[in-house]
Structure formats: C-alpha cells, structure tokens
C-alpha cells in the first residue's frame, strides 16, 4: 500500500473513531456537533502528527486474537498475583531478566513493554534500543517463551516484520 492511500485510510478510520468518541462523551446531543466537528478534525490532525500512518494496516483478525489473548492472560495474571499475596508464605522468587527484542523500534516495542507489565509475572523495567529488561516474580518461569508469544501476536496485529536474527 502506498503512503497516500495509507494516509487517506488513516484519516477516515481515525476520524470515525474520534467522532464515535465525541458521540459517547456527549451522549449524542445533536447541539454539540458544532464544537464536536472542530474537535474531531483537530484530534485527527494531532493523531496524524504524533503517530504518522506507516503504510501497513492493523489486521482485524490479529486485533481480535490479541484481545482474546490479552483477556485470558490478564485473568491469569490477576489470579497469580492474588494467590501470591494471600498465601501464608508468598513464595516469590523474583529477579531481573534481559531480553533482545525482535520487534522493530516504535509503537510495537512500546506496546510490548506495556502489555508485559499487565501480563502474569512480568514487569517492564527498562527499554533501551532492542533490549528490554523485565522484573519477573518467578525466575524459574519460562519468561522468554512468553515474551516471544506476545511479540508474535503484536507483530501479526500491527503487520510488522520480526527480526529473527536477534
């Protein structure tokens, strides 16, 4: 997809999303669309400046698969932390874990770091280039394998190439 088409698509999609947001915030009051139209246009312009379209589009199947994965893992993460907290002896075995990322720089890596902080047993501590430092609740858990799974899902959702030489 060339950049011009990608920009048109991005303007349309983001415009629709911001309009939906305005509709929800104002409970669909018809009198509010004068201010709303200007706000939607400005918000779309700001989003294009802050996050320019890259020419790949978000895969819808990828998005649904990522969301389902995220919900299931969130449930696991919450239950795990609750179990550690409520046990008579928590039995934590924490430590740091360094991982070389395969995702390209940019949105993908930031989403990965934030997602991992919300998933079971991992907390992002430092993101420096392609190195991600995690704090883990259990050193003996297969952390790297779980990170690779999240990377695969994010790459599929965002249409990104993974650097498999890393």
């Amino acid at each position: 997809m060339n950049i011009r088409r990608a920009t048109v698509r991005a303007v349309l999609w983001r415009g629709v999303l911001f309009a939906l947001l305005w509709w929800a915030l104002t409970d669909g009051r018809p009198g509010s669309w004068g201010v709303g139209g200007v706000s939607v246009a400005l918000a779309t312009a700001a989003s294009l400046a802050l996050l320019p379209p890259v020419g790949t589009c978000v895969s819808r199947i990828g998005l649904v698969r990522f969301l389902v994965f995220f919900f299931v893992q969130s449930l696991r993460g919450g239950v795990q932390v609750a179990a550690f907290a409520l046990r008579p002896r928590p039995g934590l075995r924490p430590g740091f874990h360094d991982i070389a990322l395969r995702l390209p720089a940019g949105l993908g890596r930031i989403l990965l770091a934030n997602t991992l902080s919300l998933l079971p047993g991992t907390l992002s501590v430092e993101l420096d280039g392609d190195r991600l430092c995690l704090h883990v609740l259990d050193e003996t858990a297969p952390t790297e394998r779980e990170v690779r799974v999240v990377e695969d899902r994010l790459a599929h959702m965002l249409g990104l190439e993974l650097d498999t030489t890393a």
């Binding site: 969130s74 449930l75 993460g77 919450g78 932390v81 907290a85 924490p94 907390l123 704090h135 609740l137």
Partner: peptide
Amino acid sequence: YTRLHALAKADNLGLG
C-alpha cells in the same frame, strides 16, 4: 518491584 506487580495486575483485572 514486586509491589508494582501487585498494583498493575490488580488494577487491570479488578477494574476490568
């Protein structure tokens, strides 16, 4: 670090 784990996961699931 471990306290941050407790906060992040509880916020996520509890609020969810």
